[in-house]
Design a protein around this nucleic acid. Structure first.
Lengths: 317, 317
DNA sequence: TTCAAGACTGCAAACAGTTGCACTAAACCT
DNA sequence: AGGTTTAGTGCAACTGTTTGCAGTCTTGAA
């Protein structure tokens, strides 16, 4: 039925171990034998059974990627890049979605542990303690979170926020509203402290807010009342919601108020006005994470972010 | 190092086969023994090794999902739903991206064939001949494509298009432009023939166009010149681009022209004006596809689409 | 010519489970 | 009481590959 290494061995007149070696250690087998085995294998349509291989070697050549929500536009580019990187080195990628639930996260890591050579966790929600325990079962690299003992890929939101506020400042805005994210968010804190470093602008913090379009929409009135002419939003969704909310209040963007988002997700590019935003190197992060995993290096990397200036920012009137 | 079935057997004083059965055929083992084995297994942190299990049973409890482009907003909801369905039945899901290349598609199917119990292919680009050959290696279900011999999940775009055109007609539009997709696209043909069935409107076909925002943008002038007051676009991206292009030409949506998209992707919901569109049941399709796969039924299903009326359509002036 | 080294290749024991078969003991029929 | 079923468990072979060890054959050097 399915063609195994034995079939190839028989058909090419060598022992199975030789066939095995032509695939996993080609230099150990005579060139002539090798090509013969290879052509026979090709004819028969032989493909090594990875499960069997995994059994002896302990390496599955599979990787897992765990994100909070596949449908959140922030993640797909990261997933795509991770997949490409894995594929390039002949790894296969499990993708899993925790639905934002820490418990699902833990469960998934457990379930994957024996089936992958490593995992990448994006912005994990589980506690440090849980993660440290899990790290003993399976190697992983964490994106967007500091965790001692695990490889870490960070995106420098802080610096991005600084660039954004400086951009607003450069345009002439003197009073800037920070529409922050959920309480307790590491990212949100990072954005705030970085924004506060910028001289020459007065910062008004509005929030906490839900990290969604709705959250931004709801914050519109507070932004108007704050007297700010420029806004840095927690992320692009919030920015988009905010722009809509401001519109309802009769305030135009960028004529009346400038707003900049964070993340650079697709809907922001398509929005009108096109969103000025801090681009997060999600693709680079995904790629790097799987590279680190495959090379089994434990490092902490901080990726640069940059500002993408589009149509939602302008000088104040 | 890693705890195996033998460790559990030793620690609970039974034979390995008994341990095996308490996991894979619990009803065959005495209740008392079962709980004893279970608690011991729990204590030791035992998890069955799926690779080893796969070796004997031939079933991996893994599924694969192959899409053209993970970053295309159309797919993530489908992936998410497929993942949830798989997870619910204790399957793991490989996700792969072909980057729109038919060759990659074939290669991926081959590579996965021994490692999964089944595959779901979304809108595959490979030829029928190739697909039929691949179907012999691994069971799969196809989404958005008819293929004899394989289970099929279709979304009824045709009917959706009809609803859209009828909606425009109902608003009073008498001349409707169809901004079609790429040449040779099955979906595009489907949309066209269905649209032509609607009485009382004159249909102007514009295209072929690239299925992107840019494609829609480029078609704006032709739409203006066509004298149509209503437009059905090949998909939401095209619609969004078109709206922008019309704006450049001084035409407002929906005041001057009404446009409806197809797919109901997130950016359409966030766009201004909010896009009237034909909602595709992508989540249902993903869920159903994995259910069919797991239950090994070969069926052809056609899922209903429906119209979501938002702000980009209105009566003509 | 002899020996050592090196290049290939074969042998067989793992790897971690599953499962058909055989066996025991208890329960169920007449 | 004797025979038959049934439940529960053990035995051992098997899944497809890898890999340390040992054997054979060449080749090169002394």
């Amino acid at each position: 039925m399915t063609v195994t290494i034995r079939d190839v061995a028989r058909a090419s007149g060598v022992h199975v171990s030789t066939v095995s070696r032509t695939f996993s250690a080609p230099h150990m087998v005579n060139a002539a034998t090798r090509t013969r085995v290879l052509t026979v294998a090709e004819e028969l349509g032989y493909r090594p059974n990875r499960a069997a291989r995994a059994l002896t070697t302990g390496r599955t050549h599979n990787l897992g990627l765990i994100v909070a929500d596949i449908a959140n536009p922030f993640f797909p580019p990261l997933i795509k890049a991770a997949h490409a990187a894995a594929r390039q080195r002949d790894y296969h990628l499990f993708v899993a979605d925790t639905d934002e639930e820490p418990a699902a996260e833990e469960e998934l890591v457990q379930a994957f542990s024996k089936q992958v050579d490593g995992l990448v966790l994006c912005s994990p929600r589980a506690s440090n303690k849980v993660l440290e325990r899990l790290a003993e079962r399976v190697p992983f690299v964490v994106i967007n979170r500091r965790l001692r003992g695990a490889a870490t890929v960070l995106m420098d939101v802080g610096n991005g926020a600084r660039l954004a506020v400086e951009h607003l400042s450069g345009l002439g805005h003197r009073r800037v509203a920070l529409v922050s994210g959920p309480a307790g968010s590491w990212t949100s804190a990072e954005i705030r402290t970085a924004s506060e470093q910028v001289h020459g602008v007065e910062l008004v913090v509005i929030g906490p807010n839900a990290p969604t379009e709705r959250g931004g929409f709801a914050a519109a009135a507070q932004v108007r009342d704050s007297g700010a002419t420029g806004v840095l939003a927690y992320n692009d969704l919030v920015a988009i919601g905010l722009i809509e909310g401001l519109g309802e209040l009769g305030l135009g963007v960028p004529e009346d108020v400038s707003v900049v988002g964070i993340d650079d997700i697709v809907p922001g590019r398509l929005n009108r006005p096109k969103l000025t935003t801090v681009a997060m190197p999600t693709a680079a992060a995904g790629r790097l994470a799987v590279d680190l995993l495959i090379q089994e290096v434990t490092a902490t990397t901080s990726l640069e972010t940059h500002l993408v200036i589009r149509d939602s920012t302008a000088p104040p009137r």
